[in-house]
């Protein structure tokens, strides 16, 4: 019975996730038209693994901010910021994804 329980829980558990928020910034007049969008999109993702809740900084947020600016030295418009968590066994991974349009 315990084996069935374990198998069932592993199947149900899988890898679950939770999107806490997805924020879209304002979009300035310099934004390219959608037809040219793909070549202007920049995207960065940073993450932090947390074991049993012991975490002492949230520097991964600033890392995403820095990496986005490094990827696009010109104006960055239409910024979509997503904060999510992937749940795991006794630990979890916090993720920041920043996707924006590089108005070069």
């Amino acid at each position: 019975m315990k084996k069935i329980l374990l198998l069932l829980s592993m199947t149900l558990a899988g890898c679950t996730h939770s999107i806490h928020m997805s924020h879209m910034s304002d979009v300035s007049a310099n934004t390219p038209k959608s037809i040219n969008l793909n070549k202007h999109i920049v995207e960065v993702t940073t993450e932090q693994t947390v074991v049993l809740g012991f975490v002492f900084d949230i520097d991964y947020v600033d890392q995403a901010y820095q990496q986005l600016q490094e990827k696009c030295p010109t104006e960055i418009v239409a910024v979509n910021t997503q904060y999510s968590t992937s749940h795991r066994f006794l630990h979890w991974t916090n993720k920041i994804r920043m996707k924006a349009v590089c108005a070069s």
């Binding site: 910034s25 304002d26 002492f56 949230i58 947020v61 986005l68 910024v79």
Partner: peptide
Amino acid sequence: CVSLNSVSLTQI
């Protein structure tokens, strides 16, 4: 222990 509640970014 620190936890992040929300984050947002405007145009750079």
